[in-house]
């Protein structure tokens, strides 16, 4: 079922139902969606519109009730838990709303984590970690642990970690939700710059106006259906 196209994400008739029968919640109702490389896209919609569910299903963290997902042409259905883990490790970077980091690891170690899982040699690891932490403006804080970092700094670390393995896709679930607007915009600026420099694909889920302003494509989600798709 591999799709020989260039799309980073492609979904077909994606539905997701939580629960059963009368208490069933239809989080997604037939989502057909394509994300091309290099996009800087925001999935927007009110709470409960299915944004997070969409991102979870797209990244293989959750399985769809029906429909299919292809990431870079690879169908996620039929992948084992282990294969999915490896796929995420190598192709997707995540930035979550909060509590992103492993609290017992330092900033540098958090960033290094994926490289360690990938088995990247030590020297290269050190270099990449340093490079990325510098890029997100955290040199000098590399040995701090998350509790000793501010919310914004933690998100920077998260972004650095999401990017360190050079994934084709970065999924960010409400990355600015817990930040003040100044820190939020700094972060968005940084991500925009990284997107332009590296051509990495960014997909956000958000209901933050500021994120929408930065996004070059807005996908509107309402009751689990795409109700709008505008490109700037």
């Amino acid at each position: 079922m591999a799709k020989a196209n260039t799309a980073v994400i492609q979904t077909e008739g994606l539905t997701k139902v939580y629960g059963e029968d009368r208490i069933a919640v239809h989080a997604l109702r037939g989502v057909d969606w394509v994300v091309e490389p290099g996009e800087f896209t925001a999935v927007v919609g009110p709470s409960g519109s299915g944004k997070t569910t969409l991102l979870n299903v797209v990244s293989g963290l959750d399985t769809p009730t029906s429909g299919n997902v292809w990431l870079k042409g690879n169908p996620l259905s039929g992948m084992t838990g282990r294969a999915l883990s490896d796929f995420r490790r190598d192709h997707i970077g995540f930035v979550f709303q909060a509590y992103n980091l492993i609290p017992v690891l330092t900033a540098a170690e958090n960033v290094e984590y994926i490289l360690l899982l990938q088995g990247v040699p030590a020297e290269e690891r050190q270099q990449r970690v340093h490079e990325l932490l510098t890029q997100v403006g955290l040199e000098g804080m590399t040995d701090r642990r998350p509790p000793d970092l501010s919310g914004g700094q933690q998100q920077r670390v998260a972004i650095a970690r999401a990017m360190v393995a050079k994934p084709s896709l970065i999924l960010a679930d409400e990355p600015t939700a817990n930040l003040d607007s100044e820190t939020g915009s700094q972060l968005l600026n940084m991500m925009q710059a990284l997107n332009q420099e590296t051509g990495m694909t960014f997909v956000f889920s958000t209901h933050d106006r500021m994120v929408m302003d930065y996004a070059r494509r807005l996908v509107r989600l309402h009751d689990g259906q795409i109700t709008g798709d505008e490109r700037k």
Partner: peptide, 12 residues
């Protein structure tokens, strides 16, 4: 935390 680790590609 385990969720994050899983998302990052940590195997079960």
């Amino acid at each position: 935390e385990y969720g994050v680790l899983k998302a990052l590609g940590t195997r079960p």
